[in-house]
Amino acid sequence: MKNRIKVYRAMHDLTQEGLANELGVTRQTILAIEKGKYDPSLELAFKIARFFGVTIEDIFLYGDTAEQK
């Protein structure tokens, strides 16, 4: 599953460490999600989306949606 966390992080001028601290996870978890090595749980996905003030679909791109964008 692809995602646009890196883009939103850049828009909010946040480091991985900063975002990780805000969400209560490790920096490695943010890195693993960004690199597509780990798909977050629904709860963490909602937390990320709410933190950036957008919907889950804006950040996480599933299957065909990812190819279209």
């Binding site: 480091t15 991985q16 460490e17 490695q28 890195l31 693993a32 690199k35 090595k37 780990y38």
Partner: peptide, 11 residues
């Protein structure tokens, strides 16, 4: 390793 514990990036 599989879930990116030892990955590094520019940060």
């Amino acid at each position: 390793r599989k879930y990116g514990d030892w990955d590094t990036d520019e940060e």
